[in-house]
């Protein structure tokens, strides 16, 4: 009897956490999904109404801007971070004596809160006193760099700050990937007289495909969840010019008291993330099980 009970201990131990995940992740997703189909305003209501919330969402110009911003910001953020990260990783891979120090410098922004990053960049990009003013003081009177207050350009300031924050992290991922390439393959190529750049282009980088994939997944995930940086850097402004789905959802939920809209926008965000992440995780888990 005791013996039987003892065999169940592992299950009992795991049960609370599993229950928590079931309720607070999956249960809550269901709740949000449900509410997104109702007419909830300030308080949640539970009578299913249909997809009107989604129709209203996609008819809203503010949501349009948010989605468009997401694609502009997400696309640029991912591409630039990857390029910069890869470049840094390759440069650092050339047996640099001070690699440790440099790596520390490139990566430290990742330790900062996005609120801190946003606060700092907001100050540099401030046209009156920041970079613009400084360059003008150097004698370039016509220099303008007012992206922060320019509705057409403000979204790019978020890209700048986000790339500054995350590119060092991508560098670390890529550096680990570069280092894991079989040394003998590289030596064989060197013996064959293949130039270094060619070794990178034809051998090393293609063999890092999985690293690219995981970097992409992480960056895409960061982009879609981006909230803090926008709040701290532009507050979503000027106007709604830098709204992202995350800020849209937040303002619907907590300042506009429109729970139905908040829920439906959250569900759209989740759909986008799952469209990217689920196939990736599925293939990861499956390949791992196959290998076992």
């Amino acid at each position: 009897m005791l013996e039987r009970l003892e065999r169940q201990i592992p299950k009992f131990v795991l049960a609370p956490s599993f229950a928590a995940i079931l309720v607070f992740v999956y249960g809550f997703i269901v709740w949000t999904g449900w509410v997104s189909l109702t007419k909830s305003k300030l308080m949640p209501r539970y009578e299913i109404e249909g997809i009107t919330q989604y129709q209203r969402l996609f008819a809203s110009p503010r949501w349009d801007t948010a989605l468009e911003n997401l694609f502009v910001f997400g696309g640029l953020f991912i591409v630039l971070s990857m390029l910069l990260g890869l470049l840094l990783a390759i440069l650092l891979d050339q047996k640099i004596r001070t690699e440790g120090v440099l790596r520390t410098i490139y990566l430290y922004p990742m330790a900062l809160s996005l609120i801190v990053t946003g606060t700092a960049w907001r100050w540099f990009l401030n046209p009156g006193l920041g970079i613009e003013a400084t360059v003008r003081k150097w004698g370039f009177e016509d220099f303008t760099f007012d992206w922060l207050v320019n509705p057409d350009m403000a979204i790019y300031t978020i890209v700048i700050a986000a790339v500054w924050q995350a590119s060092g992290f991508v560098m670390a991922l890529f550096l680990a990937g570069l280092r894991s390439v079989e040394d003998e393959i590289i030596r064989a190529a060197q013996v064959d007289g293949i130039p270094l750049w060619r070794i990178y282009v034809s051998i090393i980088i293609p063999s890092m495909a999985p690293v690219f994939l995981s970097a992409f997944i992480v960056l895409a995930h960061l982009a879609i969840k981006s909230f803090d940086l926008v709040i701290a850097l532009t507050g979503g402004g000027p106007g709604y010019a830098t709204d992202l789905p995350a800020t849209y959802m937040y303002s619907m939920a907590f300042s506009r008291g429109n729970i139905g809209q908040a829920a439906s926008s959250a569900m759209v965000m989740m759909a986008v993330i799952f469209a990217i992440v689920v196939p990736y995780l599925y293939s990861e888990l499956r390949s791992r099980n196959d290998a076992r």
Partner: peptide, 9 residues
């Protein structure tokens, strides 16, 4: 991996 927005409410 879920976006936390979906559990906020």
């Amino acid at each position: 991996f879920i976006p936390f927005q979906v559990v906020l409410l």
